[in-house]
Every structure is written in C-alpha cells, then in structure tokens.
Simulated scan of single mutants.
Amino acid sequence: MIQNQFVGTWRLVSYELRGADGQLSYPYGPDTVGYLMYLPDGYMSVVIMSANRPKFAASDIMSGNIEERATAAKTYISYCGKYEIQGNKVIHHIEASLFPNWIAVDQDRFFEFTAEKLSLSTTPILVNGQQQTAHLIWEHV
C-alpha cells in the first residue's frame, strides 16, 4: 500500500500571490496564519487568515456592524470537502467555503514535497481584478 504523504496537519509557512508581471503581494499580510488538514478518509479542510484581525466591539458571535463583518470576511478564507490526487495535482472538491463561488467547484493545486514541507500552487485565479497564482508553503505539524 502506498502511503498518502498528504495525510496530517500542516501549518502555513508562507503565502504569496504572483501576478503575470511577476509582482508579488501578500493578501493576508506578512504574518498570515493557516492550517491545512488532510484526512485518510479523503476529506480536507483549510483555514487562512491575517494574524492581526481587529475584534468586534461586541462579544456576541452573531453581532458586528457592516464594517466589522466586511473586514472579518476580507481577512479570512476557509473551505473543506473531499480531495483526490492526480499526478502532480491534488484536487479539492469544495463542499463548504467562506467564498460562496467556490462551493461545488473543484480547485486544482499543483504540489511538491520537500523534507517536511508541502508546496501548493494554483492555476491563475482572479484576485483584486487581476489574474494571479497563489503559492503556499506548509510545514508538517
């Protein structure tokens, strides 16, 4: 039986976007926090957020004015679903996502393993009106 190298919990080391012109950006800031989990039963989950997210004025989890909620959504992304490995790609079959346009959509991630790290990159995606590729490095926890 071949061991699935993906299985486990991964902590985000770096996340950058690269534009077609080579320009780099860091959508959640330099101190981005994230975890990625792949389970042996074929499910996965990921959460990525800015490390310095402002708190809501109230402690009620369902509270927040429009600005607070907009900032919270803009500084956070998560999704989960099943995954499958095909060649040099891991395909995330998204079942739930903060970004509703990704629900029931497959997201391809090109991967490479080096030592205890996993590198994932996307095909070009639209971010802030520009086609960019995301490049993420994860370390095994």
Rank of each mutant, 00 (worst) to 15 (best):
I2G: 05
I2K: 10
I2Y: 07
N4I: 08
Q5V: 04
F6M: 07
V7L: 03
T9Y: 03
W10R: 08
L12T: 09
S14A: 04
E16Q: 11
L17P: 01
L17D: 11
R18P: 00
G19L: 09
D21I: 01
Q23V: 06
L24D: 00
Y26H: 13
Y26V: 03
G29E: 02
P30T: 11
D31P: 00
G34N: 04
M37S: 14
Y38E: 01
L39R: 09
L39P: 00
M44I: 06
V46K: 00
V46P: 04
V47S: 13
I48S: 05
I48D: 07
R53G: 07
P54F: 12
K55H: 06
K55G: 07
A57D: 14
A57E: 15
A58L: 09
A58D: 14
I66C: 07
E67K: 15
E68T: 03
E68W: 01
R69L: 13
A70C: 04
T71P: 09
A72I: 05
K74A: 15
C80V: 00
G81E: 12
G81Y: 04
K82F: 02
Y83Q: 03
I85S: 01
I85K: 01
G87H: 12
I91H: 07
H92M: 08
H92R: 03
H92T: 02
I94D: 06
I94K: 05
A96R: 10
F99T: 11
N101R: 11
A104S: 14
A104M: 12
D106N: 15
D106A: 13
Q107L: 07
Q107H: 06
D108V: 01
R109Q: 07
F110I: 12
F111T: 07
F111Y: 15
E112D: 13
T114S: 14
A115L: 00
S119N: 10
S119A: 11
S121E: 04
T122E: 02
T123L: 13
T123W: 02
P124W: 02
P124D: 01
L126T: 05
V127T: 10
N128K: 12
G129Q: 11
Q130C: 09
Q132S: 02
Q132I: 09
T133F: 04
A134E: 13
L136P: 02
V141E: 09
